[in-house]
Each structure stands twice: as structure tokens, then as C-alpha cells.
């Protein structure tokens, strides 16, 4: 029982990170209709920038946090402006392939800008252990779960009540009509890329806090894929919750089956989900008109 609870909690903690990155996927899919295969790499770059700030400028939590968020915003905007906007109006296949190309470039760039060795992001917190009823918990793990829940609430409110959020939903559902209503689709796309980069970047920084930074971190993006498929590619909140589910599944598969199963549990789940409910648990079924 103790073991099970331990597994569940570590599953929730890693799942919250997957959830954050999966929300990044969903924000972009929802407003631009494409899957960003470079999400994991963008996450990783934000985490590396946070690490650089913490080692060169200051280890203060707030400075690192603000620096990382700013860096993520700039990263998202630059990628949208330089790489994605010229592809506007091209077929989905082409734009998705561009994100794949981008992923490969970013991944290799990290090996040149930084190095191939693992680093610990140390800002004086996140690795302390709290005991709750006999179960050891890292503070970073608690923080990431709380952050995910807070972001979920904030994003729900943003899409439901704010004018910009409603504009983003409008562009997602029908960009031409949205244009006629006076919404700038390019601005919405830029905003979506920046927001997605920040949300996923937060996940990346938390990952670096609890575990280590290394060039293999881009795999977080692949691990978050199942989460967003499970929750629904167009459901931001669903993706966040999907992350928690995938995290728990992985942790249980790793704890009770084998470590190999842990690696592929999420992918096996993708295939099952796509067979049964291709649009995800919270996603909307799209109906194709001929």
C-alpha cells in the first residue's frame, strides 16, 4: 500500500510535468491547427536558459523565474515569426514537417551552445524532502502539481472570460470568419506560440529542478504526446489532466511490470486511445464535410 501510494505520487509529479508540456501542444493545436513536434526541444531550451541564469547571474528564485518566462516568450515569438509565419496557408503536412525540421535543429543546437553533460538546476529549493504520513515528497514535486492545477484554472478562465481568449477560440474554430470579425489571426498565432512556449517551459524548469538537465530532455516532448492525445489535441484542460493520467500509468507500469514497460506505457496507451476515441477524452470529434 505504501509502495502504491509512493508510485501514485511520483506518477502525479512527473505527470504534472507532462501535463504542462501537453498543454503547450494543445494551445498551439487549438489556435493554429498543427501539432508542434518541436515542443520538447522548446521546453528543453527554456530549462537550459533558466540554468544559465541561475549559474551566471543569480540563483534567486524570482530572477530565474522571470528570466525563464521572458526567454520562453521570446523563443516562442521568434520561432513563430521566422519559421512558422512564412508557412501560413501551406498544407498541414508541410507545416508539421517544418516543426520536425525545427525540432532536429534545436536539439542539435543545444549540444553546441551548452554541452552534452547533465547539470543540476540548483536554486536552493525543490530538492528538500517533506514527510507526509510516512511518505517522502520532494518540495519540487508538490510545487509542480500545485502549479499545474493553478495554470489549469487560469487557462480555463482565460479562454472562458477574456476577450483575447475568446478571439483565440474564434480563430481556432473558423479562421476566415474570425478574420472577417476583425481578429488578427497572425497576432493570435504569435500569442499562442508564446503562451505555449511559456507553459511548456515552466514544465521544463520544474523537470530540471526535480531531476537533471541533459540533452536527452527533448524526450519529454515525446512523453507528453500521449498526454495530449489522451486528453484531446484541441482540449487544453484535457491535455493537462491527460498528463496526470499518463504519469500515473507510467509510474505504475514501471513499478509493477518492468522499466522497459515504463518507457513505452504512454505510447501503448496512445495506440489504444487512438483506436477507441481518436479525438481524445475531452476533445471534439471533427466532422468532415465533402
Amino acid at each position: 500500500m505504501q509502495y502504491l501510494i509512493q508510485l501514485l505520487i511520483s506518477g502525479l509529479a512527473i505527470g504534472a510535468i507532462y501535463g504542462l508540456i501537453a498543454m503547450g501542444f494543445a494551445v498551439i493545436y487549438k489556435s493554429t491547427g498543427l501539432v508542434n513536434f518541436a515542443q520538447g526541444e522548446m521546453t528543453m531550451i527554456t530549462a537550459y536558459i533558466a540554468w544559465t541564469i541561475s549559474t551566471t547571474v543569480s540563483g534567486n528564485v524570482f530572477i530565474v523565474a522571470i528570466g525563464a518566462i521572458l526567454a520562453a516568450v521570446v523563443l516562442g515569438l521568434v520561432i513563430e515569426r521566422l519559421v512558422m509565419r512564412p508557412m501560413l496557408g501551406e498544407p498541414v503536412f508541410a507545416t508539421v514537417m517544418v516543426t520536425i525540421g525545427l525540432a532536429v535543429i534545436l536539439r542539435s543546437a543545444i549540444n553546441f551552445v551548452w554541452d552534452a553533460y547533465p547539470h543540476a538546476l540548483d536554486i536552493g529549493m525543490g530538492r528538500g524532502i517533506v514527510h507526509l504520513g510516512g511518505i517522502g515528497l520532494r518540495t519540487g514535486q508538490i510545487a509542480v502539481i500545485v502549479t499545474l492545477l493553478a495554470l489549469l484554472a487560469a487557462i480555463w478562465a482565460f479562454f472562458r472570460y477574456s476577450k483575447v481568449g475568446v478571439a483565440m477560440r474564434a480563430v481556432a474554430s473558423d479562421d476566415r470568419t474570425a478574420l472577417l470579425m476583425g481578429i488578427s489571426a497572425t497576432k493570435v498565432h504569435a500569442l499562442a506560440w508564446a503562451a505555449s512556449s511559456v507553459i511548456a517551459g515552466i514544465g521544463g524548469v520544474f523537470f530540471a529542478l526535480s531531476y537533471d538537465l541533459s540533452p536527452a530532455m527533448f524526450q519529454l516532448g515525446l512523453k507528453a504526446f500521449p498526454a495530449t492525445i489522451l486528453g484531446g489535441l484541441d482540449a487544453v484542460l484535457g491535455s493537462g489532466l491527460g498528463g496526470l493520467l499518463i504519469g500515473i500509468t507510467e509510474s505504475l507500469a514501471g513499478g509493477y511490470l518492468s522499466s522497459g514497460m515504463k518507457e513505452v506505457a504512454g505510447f501503448a496507451m496512445i495506440i489504444v486511445v487512438l483506436m477507441v476515441r481518436p479525438f481524445g477524452i475531452f476533445g471534439e470529434r471533427d466532422i468532415e464535410r465533402v
Binding site: V35, V92, F93, V96, L222, F225, P226, I229, S258, G260, M261, E263, V264, F267, A268, I270, I271, L274, M275, P278
Partner: peptide, 28 residues
């Protein structure tokens, strides 16, 4: 056979998942 219900991106994702699963299967 199961992927045929899917199109475009979804198929890309299942095949991606397949390539990771097959590596684990081979290692196991």
C-alpha cells in the same frame, strides 16, 4: 490495421509510437 481509421497527423503519431515500442520489444 488499427491505424487505418486514422488520418494525417494521428497516423504519424501512431507510427512514431510504434518505432519506440518496437525498440523496447527487441530489447526485451
Amino acid at each position: 490495421a488499427p491505424s487505418l481509421r486514422l488520418k494525417g497527423l494521428y497516423l504519424a503519431i501512431t507510427t512514431l509510437a510504434f518505432s519506440f515500442i518496437i525498440n523496447t520489444v527487441i530489447l526485451e
